[in-house]
Write a protein that binds this DNA or RNA. Structure first.
Lengths: 286, 286
DNA sequence: GTCATAAATTGTCCTAGACAAATTTTTAAT
DNA sequence: ATTAAAAATTTGTCTAGGACAATTTATGAC
């Protein structure tokens, strides 16, 4: 596997991969005849764990000082505590076909209602998938499959259930370079449950286009999500720029790991947890 | 705008941007205090046009030999001929709100049926959007918005209409690095119309995971899409590798610009146009 | 005209170095 | 001993210029 492919695959920059090799001596790939790097499956797997540990707050220096086994241990140690065991999820993560997955998800949604479904079912499910990947009991393919079905179901909710006659309209989007949209979707679903008219953009949008769209659609606010992969510094800059471009009356809401670290600004609402959404709603729109 | 952001935004590699500057003298960005490149809005717009021309088959050497105006002319000249004017589309591309766009799309779908909707409405619409962007009459934001609603509608069709009791199951996916999924979605919708049970993955999948998923889901075939942004060489390699990994009984179908250039292989079906889908269906599954 | 060979074009990789932002450690002061 | 400022370390992203294989175009022989 090429350095380019690897970078794409696990979401670590090419420059970063090279400098890790130079500084920490890992990963050291084999070289092709032309001297190009070629990574093994093992190295890819190791790097996934490294990436995971990093996003959990550990720094490269420490991560690379550990052996492969120690890393694995650290990973389970770090994630374990957060797990809320839920036996109801077991079948979903194991044997069901996509049709059955769909059926199961829909049934749970019916039973719990949208809000409880997200908090009591979807979030634990996502945690379990994560945990399962850590343990090696769930393949990436399966994780993607289930996440995909869940996304589909939630997206459907945004369209089909007509919101109550709230005049409030919110635009949900991610900026170019932010490929993680699940968090945004969950947030949108919860805002939807609060009676907000939610417009969710699946495509990533250049910063400069956001203003055009908000004025064209005459929305009352814009909600953005910045995952841990988005440079926190950049998120801050982007939000400031956006706040500047937008009409002061348009609310600006940001969520995701990259904005947890004390981004503060006039006229900007940071959403640190999905639980806050009802509160944010009533604060902004009443 | 940073070189990294620019690269993300328009889909041209960082190395490529630098070497274009070295070789062709464009774009030459201003430099920050530390010597880092900083691109202007004009340059970004120019580069979008360059990218477009390139994907239309023109080579960089020629593109960069032209002036800005000449490039614009060449672009309109190249795309113009393909346009099938359709006045019915006009309102959609101009003034409607997302809710109205949704309504309009749904009405057309109702009226035409899925297959005709795609051929007679969706494809011309996408062409018009493209054309509109070229002329500068449609913003990127609006293009994304409409594309997004269309995607949503089509994706819905795959779920809601239960396919007839065909035993045939097809998995539709894109490999890591392929971010364009619209073509795949259109194809899936047409296969769906042929009575195939279509499982569409929204997430990009590593090559190595595809085999696991096909065997786990026991699908009868896998369909992949490779847009013009995917390196054609790589697509060929990936397909060969995949064909090798998969059970010979599992059909392999590939589409998109990157596989138009004479990729041939045992037991691989190349789909060069959406019109071919009914034929492919009957050939593979009867 | 057709085919093989040579030349030009093009994108991606290479090395090695620099530096700012963020974080940690050390030092100084109360 | 706690806190604050200063120094050192860590980390990711940028820089430059070079190399080369894959592809496309031009040249020449038949």
């Amino acid at each position: 596997m090429t350095i380019q492919q690897l970078s794409n695959e696990i979401g670590i920059g090419i420059d970063t991969l090279r400098i890790w090799e130079r500084r920490y001596g890992f990963p050291i790939p084999t070289r092709s005849a032309r001297g190009h790097r070629s990574y093994s499956d093992d190295q890819i797997h190791e790097l996934r764990i490294v990436k995971k540990l990093q996003s959990l707050g550990h720094r490269p220096g420490k991560i690379f000082a550990l052996s492969s086994d120690e890393r694995q241990k650290l990973l389970t140690a770090t994630t374990e505590q957060e797990l809320t065991p839920n036996t109801a999820l077991q079948p979903l993560t194991k044997e069901l076909s996509p049709v059955q997955i769909n059926a199961e998800l829909r049934e749970q949604l019916q039973r719990l209602g949208l809000v409880s479904f997200i908090h009591q079912y979807a979030l634990p499910l996502l945690q379990t998938l994560d945990q399962g990947w850590t343990e090696g009991s769930i393949s990436i393919a399966r994780e993607h499959l289930i996440t995909d079905r869940l996304e589909e179901l939630l997206r459907e909710q945004l369209v089909t259930e007509q919101p109550t006659k709230s005049q409030k309209k919110l635009l949900f989007l991610t900026l170019s370079g932010e490929r993680h949209k699940l968090g945004l979707l969950l947030a949108a679903a919860l805002f939807h449950a609060e009676g907000i008219n939610c417009i969710l953009l699946n495509q990533e949008l250049p910063l400069s286009e956001v203003q055009k769209l908000t004025s064209e659609l005459q929305v009352d606010g814009v909600a953005l999500s910045f995952s841990c992969h988005y440079p926190a510094r950049q998120a801050k800059i982007d939000l400031a720029s956006l706040r500047n471009q937008l009409d002061p009356q348009v609310k600006l809401i940001a969520g995701g790991q990259a904005v947890q670290g004390g981004v503060t600004m006039q006229n900007l609402t940071i959403c640190t947890a999905l639980k806050q959404i009802p509160g944010i709603c009533s604060k902004l729109f009443t």
